[in-house]
Write a protein that binds this DNA or RNA. Structure first.
Lengths: 336, 336
DNA sequence: CTGAAAGCGCTTACAG
DNA sequence: CTGAAAGCGCTTACAG
């Protein structure tokens, strides 16, 4: 493998016997004032030399890069990849492309990626934020780089945002269970050592829904703990004086732990324990019994996020920032 | 929101009362010949102005970008995101970052992303290839951009590659079933309209394993069809003269379809139908009965891919290209 | 210890 | 229809 020198526009110009300007015109498809002979000659040389223009040079002149960043909190979440797929498809239709970056739940990494995306001069960024330090996101706003938040919000930052109506999600879960006569409903979610919007709002929604359904709120039935502690906590609360007869899983990862425990310990669902999960999961139909879930309208959320970002990128118009809340939907199956 | 002019190195230099060169020295942390007073002054101004150097300009001079591309065939596959997570972590330790791009199973998109990554001058690319047109990948080789293939190979391209020993995977599946006395073993996988390495190799491995186990090969028990046709095909083959008593699912998506069918139709597993899936899936333990799977050593594969790429990027040394084949592992559960 | 100058590979207004 | 020239925002060898 011989290390070949990178081909530049000058090489093409020289070999084609025209000026760099003309080659540049060709690259940018401004054929208007170009003889077809010149055009063909340039085309041939470009193919021969396998020339690819250096975007770094181009972007130095032309301010638009036609690239947006999608910075996800954690790429392992199904929600992230599904939104990515949808957003990308919309971008495609607008001649844009996406670089996906993964914060891996690490605020430090997120900050580095934001710096990198700024440095690469992306036209806009869709962020599933992990950090709670608003100064980081302020860089973007200072640089007038459009951003759209998805799934989570950050205190102190006002921008276009797209997320589930988490209160409604909890309400749907609680009220559905209440109708079936459940009174002792446990709520499990991941930690909120630092504020994570969906977790906080879903807990809050749970509390309000309990009140609305005239059920007694028992704080000891609310668990906000790390993944590996869920099974122990569940085991524990089964020995309460009044153990729960129903569980709401705050997200897909939590649901997985709960189902593992229930299966391992032969707790019959829904007879001994009703289960309802927020987030639709691939295996909801597969479990025995199939699991009732509260689904996010991912398709619409992805489209809205893409649309918001594209609007900001295209026109300079300054409509006020809006936080869009999407209504959840219950998918009734056999676990309640 | 007032559109602020982008801050450049000149702005910083002017405000700090030094030359651009000095600011540049500061940015690149060459403090050796810099008075601490100058250093502090520059630092202060950078913070005040919120200055972020433009990487496009930098990369025009400095050939290394410290960024690699990870181009996945389809970001919805768990394998992709798990490998991304692992690779990224290794890159992090080497001061590099990753831009993830999603081909969405579309060779045209893949080509565009390759062009974009070249244009952005990434230092290297990890590819889960979708296309079968080797000329596309040849661009990269022409440009001396290191590439590592993961999961799939491309005819006509020789480069470092990391993938499962697919023949061994099929062999494990077949021989395990054969030991349990199964003779009529069906194999389901997705289409091979154009060559997709794991699918082809797993079918091939299945055939060889059947021979090795002295079982009669029945071509009509091999299904290479699209996802939505799997359930019908399965239904069909249950009415064969000699229906299969065991099924091997060629990957996670196929397994999902098969389990859906079996559950819907109350086919008892493993009594009436043994099932074994290639690819470990999240819900393997959750299904009733739990599903025996053939797992890829994803951790090791991700690390190897990262290591190979970093080696090529760092040293110019020219060890020959190697295709690494990782041994699969069987995770025995209760479905066989 | 710091600055002036050339150059990276493009684009674009302008001249002809 | 095409080319010469300036400039985008950096870096770096060199001079002082």
């Amino acid at each position: 493998m011989n290390v070949k020198k990178k081909i530049t526009i000058s090489d093409v110009a020289e070999k084609a016997g025209v000026s760099k300007s003309t080659v540049s015109q060709y690259i940018n498809q401004r054929y208007k004032y170009m003889s077809s002979e010149t055009k063909e000659r340039i085309e041939r040389v470009i193919n021969e030399l396998n020339f690819r223009p250096n975007d770094n040079a181009r972007n130095l002149k032309v301010k638009k890069t036609k690239v947006v960043g999608i910075l996800v909190a954690n790429i392992l979440h199904t929600l992230s990849t599904e939104i990515i797929q949808i957003v990308e498809d919309r971008l495609q239709h607008n001649g844009m492309k996406a670089f996906v970056c993964n914060s891996a739940d690490d605020p430090e990494k997120e900050k580095e990626y934001i710096d990198l995306l700024i440095a690469k001069q992306v036209d806009g960024i869709i962020i599933f934020p992990v950090g709670n330090d608003y100064t980081v996101y302020n860089y973007l706003i200072n640089y007038s780089i459009p951003i759209v938040f998805v799934d989570r919000l950050v205190d102190g930052i006002t921008t276009d945002s797209v997320l589930l109506d988490n209160h409604a999600a909890s309400f749907l879960a609680v009220s559905t269970l209440a109708e079936k006569g459940h009174e002792n409903i446990a709520f499990f979610t991941l930690p909120i050592d630092f504020p994570v919007t969906p977790r906080i709002e879903r807990i809050d929604g749970y509390k309000k829904a309990m009140a609305a359904c005239q059920l007694k709120l028992r704080e000891e039935l609310i668990f906000s703990i790390s993944k590996d502690k869920i099974q122990d906590a569940l085991q524990n609360c089964l020995h309460f004086n009044k153990p729960p007869t129903a569980i709401i899983a705050g997200n897909d990862l939590v649901l997985l732990q709960i189902l593992k425990y229930l299966k391992k310990n032969n707790v019959s669902v829904p007879e001994k324990m009703a289960v309802i999960g927020i987030d639709n999961v691939l295996y909801a139909d597969l479990y025995e019994p199939s699991i009732t879930t509260i689904a996010q309208p991912i398709q619409q959320m992805g489209l809205k996020a893409a649309e918001l970002l594209l609007d900001r990128i295209k026109n300079e118009s300054q409509h006020p920032f809006i936080t869009y809340r999407f209504a959840p939907e219950i998918v009734e199956r056999n676990s309640i």
